[in-house]
Amino acid sequence: MVVRDLANIQGFSQQCISDEPFEISDAYTGDLLSDVMGNAPSDSVLITIQAHKNTVAVASLAQIRALVICNNRSIPPDMLQAAKEEEIAIFTTEDTQFEASCKIASALGRFDAGQN
């Protein structure tokens, strides 16, 4: 799927998005940015509660294409600005990271996650 498809997931609200139809093939859930940096796959979506500018920097460096910020946390303006510059999409949701991860696993068709 592409980044834009995340907007169709129930309860996800799009805050910004790039015009580029970046492919999303995997996902990673985590709040520790250096864990994310070291382990998140490229072309992925990051599910996190870290709503600040540094998350965008990590995403950009690790080639994460989209962020899903959970627990209804709000996006500071400098984070939004950075995301637009780095062409990283941001979605917010009231879901917990677990709930958001389940929805994304389903959207990616990754029912096999954790089985290999």
Binding site: L33, S34, D35, V36, M37, G38, T48, Q50
Partner: peptide, 16 residues
């Protein structure tokens, strides 16, 4: 609380 200090920094650098 900012998401840093996971104790992964130097090990990450070394591994890449």
């Amino acid at each position: 609380s900012l998401g840093f200090g996971a104790g992964m920094g130097l090990p990450n650098v070394k591994s890449v």
